[in-house]
């Protein structure tokens, strides 16, 4: 069987990559069999098409670059030694109570594995780092934590694949009163046709409003909002009622800064209803925010400049048109 049999309608093809006959046929169709390509009219040597060679080179180059990139990406991974060096550096430079942020966000489990023993849980549940004069950032791949965007590191140390950076901030926020931290000082009431005072239950540290409805409570909670952890005051609204949380004596400053969110992505899928949070100083409403279901941890600021230095009762009222799956959470503090 000759190799010419390969290309069209044959029973037994020879075992070669491509039929020599196919190439032969192409040559014949192109008239090559009649002899060498004639020289150009100006006497230059005959020009053969370069495109096949260029394409061949391009394919080879593309594959080689892809292989190279794959190997480089695999090799550029911070080692355990890099992470341990970063942990030692943070231990040496950091003072107790100073937060450490990880970037990019997905590397946080590794960060906690290596630095977790230095970091109390509450420092990983922050809403912001406004109050801290010194903040550490541990990062890889050149990432920056979004809270530190636009700021320049005072010092930084590149430890293999891990970078430790210290950010010093000359004018940190001065917190006068932290509602989240002091939630046990609150008085909680559920207001409908009648007013229910929710007693504080020491066994689980919460204000339980209705023993029959296990979700109807108020207290400190670790919430997931937009897949990030936050310490906040949990309060699920109740249909046709107002959930009121009152702090009897709050030292006010120039502003009241807070955050709102709806806990748990499953609940954010189950319902799209917004939740309304009103803030009152004494009987006067000073702010309101209608938190939308798809918002991330949402910051709000209320100007309390004219009340700065005074002590007043401050209340938060939480309502929703439809309270199903509205596991609302908020944090707030007064600032100088």
């Amino acid at each position: 069987m000759s190799s010419d049999d390969f290309s069209i309608d044959v029973d037994e093809a020879p075992l070669e990559l491509e039929g020599e006959s196919a190439i032969q046929q192409r040559i014949q169709r192109a008239g090559v069999e009649s002899g060498p390509t004639p020289p150009d009219p100006d006497g230059q040597p005959p020009r053969r098409p370069r495109l096949p060679l260029v394409l061949l080179a391009l394919v080879m180059l593309l594959a080689a670059v892809e292989v190279g990139a794959t190997l480089v990406q695999h090799a550029r991974v911070p080692s355990d030694a890099d992470w341990n060096a970063a942990a030692r550096k943070v231990r040496a430079e950091r003072k107790p109570g100073e937060p450490v942020l990880f970037a990019p966000h997905w590397v946080a489990p590794l960060g906690r594995l290596h630095l977790g023993d230095q970091l109390p849980m509450e420092l990983q549940l922050l809403s912001d780092v406004d109050r801290y004069p010194r903040v550490f950032e541990v990062s890889i791949r050149g990432a920056r934590h979004p809270w530190l965007e636009g700021q320049r590191a005072t010092s930084s140390w590149q430890l293999g694949g891990v970078r430790v950076a210290l950010y010093q901030r000359p004018t940190p926020a001065q917190v006068r009163f932290d509602f989240t931290h002091n939630v046990r000082q609150a008085q909680v009431t559920r207001i409908g046709r009648d007013v229910v005072h929710c007693p504080f239950r020491a066994t689980d540290s919460r204000f339980a409003c209705d023993p029959a409805r296990g979700w109807n409570w108020v207290g400190s909670y670790l919430a997931e909002v937009n897949h990030q952890p936050y310490r906040c005051i949990f309060v699920n609204p109740v249909d046709g009622h107002v959930m009121r949380i009152t702090f009897p004596a709050v030292v006010l400053g120039g502003s009241l800064v807070g955050y709102t969110g709806i806990d748990d992505f499953e609940n954010r899928k189950r319902s799209k209803e917004p939740v309304l949070l009103k803030t009152l100083v004494g009987p006067r409403q000073v702010g309101a925010i209608q938190h939308q279901n798809d918002w991330p941890w949402h910051r709000f600021t209320i100007d309390t400049h004219e009340l700065a230095g005074q002590t007043h009762p401050v209340s938060f009222e939480v309502t929703a048109t439809r309270a199903y799956a509205r596991s609302f959470c908020f944090s707030a503090e007064t600032r100088k």
């Binding site: 990559l17 096949p52 394919v59």
Partner: peptide, 18 residues
Amino acid sequence: LSRLYRAVMLRARRSAVD
């Protein structure tokens, strides 16, 4: 890939003939 191979081989053959 196979058409590229054939084109490269065709060019090589032309070179050989030339």
